[in-house]
Amino acid sequence: MGDVSARLSELGIVLPSIAPPAGNYVPYRFAGELLFVSGQIPRIDGVEHFVGVVGRDISPEEGYQAARLCALNLLARVNDALDGDLDRVRACVQVRGFVNAPAEFRGHAAVIDGASDLLVELLGDKGRHVRTALGAGSLPRGSSVEVDAVFEVTAKS
């Protein structure tokens, strides 16, 4: 068992099963040692959670949990891309988070902290990243949050 898998187990976290893309795109793509992962919404076993507008339909705290779930789905995609070896992740390079929120909402960064916190919790310093947190007028399937990311990975040994 690798370090990241051991950390997941220690925290009682199980990577969710992931559905195939819902449109004309790929879930991830390698570019050299960079792994680009498509945006993930807060979905578990094909069912959307935390649907609605943050600050109106759901609380910022629930938005934080939604972003955390998005990051967990990101890691499930990374795990798939790396044939189950999350220890090949050298670094999470960039995270972009989108929050479905009304124009007057100002807590985007605190919501996307849910994703950032989980990545650092599981990957340690390798999980620290640059980040953008944006507001969006709507997101796919009515999701409250969507998160995508770029990871630096080692070649398969």
Score class of each variant (00 low, 15 high):
residue 77 R to T: 11
residue 101 A to L: 03
residue 80 D to A: 10
residue 62 E to S: 15
residue 50 F to V: 13
residue 100 N to L: 08
residue 73 N to C: 07
residue 64 Y to L: 12
residue 48 E to N: 14
residue 47 V to F: 13
residue 63 G to A: 12
residue 66 A to V: 12
residue 67 A to T: 11
residue 84 G to R: 05
residue 63 G to Y: 00
residue 101 A to Y: 02
residue 66 A to S: 15
residue 79 N to H: 10
residue 50 F to L: 14
residue 79 N to Y: 06
residue 46 G to D: 12
residue 46 G to W: 08
residue 78 V to T: 07
residue 90 R to D: 11
residue 65 Q to T: 12
residue 54 V to I: 15
residue 75 L to N: 00
residue 50 F to S: 08
residue 95 V to P: 00
residue 69 L to Q: 12
residue 77 R to D: 01
residue 48 E to T: 12
residue 72 L to S: 01
residue 64 Y to A: 04
residue 50 F to M: 14
residue 71 A to C: 07
residue 89 V to F: 02
residue 72 L to G: 00
residue 83 D to L: 09
residue 66 A to I: 14
residue 50 F to H: 15
residue 92 C to I: 15
residue 61 E to F: 14
residue 93 V to F: 07
residue 80 D to P: 00
residue 76 A to F: 07
residue 80 D to Q: 13
residue 102 P to T: 12
residue 60 P to C: 11
residue 82 L to D: 06
residue 69 L to S: 01
residue 71 A to N: 04
residue 52 G to H: 09
residue 59 S to R: 03
residue 46 G to S: 13
residue 94 Q to G: 05
residue 64 Y to F: 15
residue 56 R to K: 14
residue 73 N to W: 03
residue 67 A to W: 01
residue 71 A to D: 01
residue 97 G to T: 08
residue 58 I to E: 00
residue 54 V to C: 13
residue 69 L to H: 03
residue 96 R to N: 10
residue 74 L to Y: 00
residue 50 F to Q: 10
residue 70 C to D: 01
residue 50 F to Y: 15
residue 58 I to Q: 00
residue 70 C to S: 06
residue 74 L to N: 00
residue 57 D to K: 11
residue 65 Q to K: 15
residue 73 N to Q: 08
residue 89 V to Y: 02
residue 79 N to E: 09
residue 102 P to Q: 09
residue 91 A to G: 11
residue 56 R to L: 14
residue 59 S to H: 04
residue 62 E to P: 08
residue 95 V to K: 01
residue 65 Q to Y: 13
residue 59 S to D: 05
residue 46 G to I: 13
residue 75 L to F: 02
residue 88 R to V: 04
residue 62 E to R: 15
residue 54 V to A: 11
residue 99 V to H: 02
residue 83 D to P: 05
residue 90 R to E: 12
residue 91 A to N: 11
residue 81 A to S: 06
residue 71 A to G: 03
residue 71 A to M: 04
residue 61 E to P: 05
residue 81 A to E: 02
residue 64 Y to Q: 06
residue 49 H to S: 14
residue 52 G to D: 05
residue 88 R to Y: 04
residue 66 A to T: 05
residue 83 D to T: 07
residue 64 Y to T: 05
residue 92 C to R: 01
residue 61 E to L: 15
residue 52 G to Q: 09
residue 89 V to I: 14
residue 101 A to F: 06
residue 64 Y to R: 15
residue 97 G to V: 08
residue 80 D to T: 10
residue 57 D to E: 14
residue 91 A to L: 08
residue 73 N to E: 04
residue 60 P to M: 12
residue 93 V to E: 11
residue 64 Y to V: 10
residue 54 V to W: 06
residue 48 E to M: 14
residue 100 N to K: 10
residue 100 N to H: 15
residue 91 A to K: 13
residue 73 N to P: 07
residue 91 A to V: 08
residue 102 P to N: 09
residue 52 G to Y: 02
residue 55 G to C: 12
residue 83 D to G: 07
residue 49 H to R: 15
residue 81 A to H: 02
residue 99 V to E: 07
residue 74 L to W: 00
residue 54 V to H: 05
residue 92 C to S: 06
residue 48 E to W: 13
residue 68 R to P: 00
residue 102 P to E: 11
residue 49 H to W: 14
residue 97 G to F: 06
residue 86 L to E: 02
residue 46 G to K: 09
residue 70 C to L: 04
residue 55 G to T: 14
residue 100 N to M: 06
residue 60 P to I: 10
residue 49 H to I: 10
residue 53 V to R: 13
residue 62 E to W: 13
residue 80 D to W: 09
residue 50 F to C: 11
residue 51 V to L: 11
residue 95 V to E: 01
residue 77 R to V: 11
residue 85 D to V: 07
